[in-house]
Amino acid sequence: MRRHFFIFFLFISVLSVGQELNCTVTVVAQQTGNDNNQVFRTLERQLTEFINNTQWTDKKFKTQERIECSMVINVQNYNNDAFSATLQVQSSRPVYGSTYSTPVYTFNDKDFQFRYLEFQNLVFNSNQFESNLISTLAFHIYMILGMDADTFAPNGGNNYFRQAQTIVNYSAGNGGKGWKLEDGLQSRFALIDNLLSPTYKEFRSSMYSYHRDGLDLMYKDLKKGKEAVSASVSDLQKMHGRRPNSFLMRVFFDSKANEVASIFSGGPSVSISQLVNALNKISPVNASKWQKIKF
C-alpha cells in the first residue's frame, strides 16, 4: 500500500513541478552563407534545452500549463565565437472554453549580439551578468512570464517584470546594445521602463480586461465578450492622449491587430463606430486591417 502511494505521489509531483515554458527555438543562418555549420544546430539544441529545462520561477506548473512560445534567432554575421543576429519572440495563451490560443507577446529584438562557443555551459544567474546571450534570452523569458500573468490577474506580472528590470540594470554596464537609455525608444530598456511606468498604466489594465473580461467570457456570452474587448481597446486612448504613438501601443497591436480585426468582422453585432474611430486614432499603421471590420 505504501509503495502504491509513493508511486502515485511521484506521478503527481512529475505532473506539477514541470518548468514554465514550452519554447520552440529556431536558429536561421542563411545570411551567413554558411548555414550548414554544425555550430548553429548545436546552438539551437542547447538553447531549447536551457530555456525549457530551467526553473524560472518558484511556482509549480503542470505540463498542460506551460506557456507556449517561440524564439527565432536570425544570424546575420558569424565570426569565430561572435554572433550578430535578430531575435523574434512570440508567446500565446489558451482562451478559456475554447481550443483557440491568443497571441500575448510579440517582439522583434534587432540588437542581439552575443558570443557563443559550441557546447559551452549555459547558466542563468538572477542577480549577476553571465553573458549577453543569457541576459537577452532571460529578459524576454521574464517578459513572456509577466505578460502572460497580466492576462490572468491585474498587474499579475509585477514580480516577473521586476526581474526583467534587474536583468537590464546589471547588463547595462557589460556591453551590448539595447540595455541603456541611449539605445533608443524601442530597446529592451525602453520596453521594461515604459511597462513599469504609470504613464502607460492602461497598457497593463487593458491586457487584463481584454483577455479575462473579453476573450475568456466569449465561450458563454460572445456578444458580452466582444463588448469587453472593445472597451479594453478603447481604453488605450487615455494612454495615447498622454504619449501619442508610444512604443507600448505598437507592442500591443503587433500581437493583437489581426485578432481585433477578426473578432469584429463576424459573429453577433455590437456597436463598433466608437471602436473603429479609436483604432484609427491609436494605431493608424493598421488602418487597412480596421477597414475589414464590418459590424
Rank of each mutant, 00 (worst) to 15 (best):
G267Y: 00
S16D: 07
N127D: 15
R250W: 10
G178W: 09
N77A: 15
Y142I: 08
L215R: 00
L10N: 05
F50W: 15
S171M: 09
K62Y: 13
I272K: 02
T26F: 09
K223V: 00
M147Q: 10
V229D: 00
Q113G: 14
S171N: 10
D148F: 05
T24W: 00
H140N: 07
S206M: 06
E227G: 02
L47K: 09
K177I: 11
E49F: 06
Q90I: 07
A82N: 12
F295D: 08
N277D: 14
K292W: 01
D213K: 14
V285L: 12
G173D: 09
N52R: 13
Y78F: 15
G241F: 07
F252T: 02
Q19T: 15
K60P: 04
M218S: 05
A153C: 04
D58M: 09
G225E: 00
H211D: 12
D58N: 15
S262N: 12
I67F: 09
N53T: 11
E44L: 07
K292S: 11
N36L: 11
L43I: 10
K60Y: 13
Y170A: 07
R93T: 14
L275D: 00
L217E: 01
D193K: 10
T48N: 15
L47Q: 05
N125R: 13
S230P: 05
L195Q: 04
F50P: 04
L21S: 08
N155C: 03
V285C: 01
V39F: 05
K59A: 11
Q237I: 07
K110D: 11
I141C: 11
D213P: 06
N194T: 01
Q38P: 08
L236V: 02
L222P: 01
L43T: 07
F252C: 11
S255Y: 03
K60V: 07
Q46V: 07
Q19M: 13
N127S: 14
L196S: 04
A164R: 01
N121H: 11
L43P: 04
S70T: 09
F252K: 08
K59R: 14
F161G: 00
Q90S: 13
P103H: 05
R250T: 12
Y170H: 15
D58W: 08
N79L: 13
P154D: 09
R250N: 15
D235G: 12
T151V: 06
Y208G: 01
V75I: 15
R204L: 03
D213S: 13
T86R: 12
K110Q: 14
T54L: 07
G157T: 03
V72T: 15
F6I: 14
D150L: 05
S232K: 04
